[in-house]
Structures are given as C-alpha cells and as structure tokens.
Write a protein that binds this DNA or RNA. Structure first.
Lengths: 110, 110
DNA sequence: AATATTAATCGTAATATTGCAATATAGTTA
DNA sequence: TAACTATATTGCAATATTACGATTAATATT
C-alpha cells in the first residue's frame, strides 16, 4: 500500500492530518520558525537559512503552501513568503480542543 | 534519499517534527479524538472504532506512543490507552508561540 | 538581445510509510 | 493443559517522501 485510506475518515480528520503532516519535517518547522523570527514577509533568502539545496527547499515550501500554512506572492523577481494564519488557526483550534478535554478528564489509570 | 537530514536541525525542530508527523495521518487523528471523546482511559476496543485491520491499528498506536502522544498500560488481558498530556503540551506550546508572534506581525504584503 | 538572478519543475535514487495476512505472544478461562 | 481472547510482530507489496543535479521559466539588468 503506502496510500492512506482517506475515504474512511471524516473531512476534518483528513484536513487536520494534512496540516500536521506538513509540519512533520524539521526543515518545514525551521521554515515556519524563520518566518516568525523575521516578523514580516520574507522575499527570497529562505534557501540560505536552511542546510538544504534550493530544489529541496522549494519542494518543502510547496508542501507548506499546499497545506495552507504559508502564502507566497510574486514580488518582482522573487517570491514573498509569509505565514498563512488560517491554517494555523485550524490546527491551533484542534490542540485547544484537546487541552480543554484533558482538563475535564480524570486520567485514573495511566 | 527518503531520509530526513535530522542532524542539520535543532533538537527542538526535530522533536516538534516528530510530534507533528505522528498526527499526520487521519487514523491517528481519529484515535486521539476517540480517546478524547470517551473522556477516560480506554481498554481495548480501539480496533473496532477504526476502519482498519488490527495490525494496522496496532502500528498506528505504536507510532503515537513512540512520539509521546499516548500512553499504554497493560490491564489484564488488554491494554489501557490514554492521552499523554506531556506530548500535547509540547506541541501546543509551539502553536501558542506561533499565535503570539502572529499578533505582533503586520503582514503587509500577503 | 545577452546575461544574470530567482525560484519551480523534472528525473531519479534512496528510504519511509501504509496496510494487511499470517504468525507470534501473552493472559484468561474452561 | 487446551482453547480462547487481545495485542504485537513479521514480512511483503504498493505507494509516498526526501534530497538533489540538471533543467526550465520568468523577470531584471546591462
């Protein structure tokens, strides 16, 4: 196999999984952290921040973009990247839900 | 390749990636949601909740456990599973950081 | 127009993931 | 002890991911 049985799960479950999966690589965590650090949109320069070749970085950026975690606009010769708040809102809500439920739980046995 | 260059990233980046990756599959999101829904530890019965064969579910549970997102204790003939709050705390903090930084940002161009 | 710059895409090799049948392991019960 | 139940492990096939060199596409600059 190798392909997930996405049809068997809810849209919400699949969407959350796509968002989480996009962050499931240290390079993509690093990209997000860099975008946060500069505290503004960044035009180019992401390749120089990472220990990876340009095509590899481009691929990681594409995955983050497809998942809805970053946005990229053309800015002259280069591209201007920044965080897509919508995607982070969705996944943050999931973790908020988890946290809220955990508060109500007793967790007697584990 | 196929193997991530984990050596090139910080421990924190790798740890967050491992946590996110573990949630990067709808079945594993479903498992977490089920553990939340029952609002207590669950002994057995997870296989019946998912549209997957027993060995596949067992494998997903193992991955969640390795990532530190669930705990499993032997309870007689079956195993008692529940959420591992520590793991969720770590990844929740990451998203809290992201959210805090986003509040400070201007986001002029995207 | 020719050249440089920036980023995406293609092609490909190495490795990882997903899913399950078959089997193994371990505790429980008859 | 033998049969039953619950979960883990093994082995394997199909597919996905990771990484990068080579190339392409598009815009700037000279």
């Amino acid at each position: 196999m190798g392909a997930s049985k996405t049809d068997s799960f809810t849209d919400r479950q699949n969407e959350l999984a796509i968002l989480a999966k996009a962050l499931g690589h240290p390079a993509r965590i690093a990209i997000i952290e860099f975008l946060l650090k500069v505290e503004t949109c960044i035009c180019g320069d992401i390749v120089n921040e990472l220990p990876l070749a340009q095509p590899t970085v481009s691929q990681h950026l594409k995955e983050l973009k497809n998942a809805g975690l970053i946005k990229g606009n053309f800015e002259g010769t280069s591209i201007c990247y920044c965080i897509n708040e919508l995607g982070f809102e969705k996944i943050k809500d999931f973790f908020q839900d988890v946290t809220n439920h955990l508060k109500k739980k007793k967790n007697e046995c584990c």
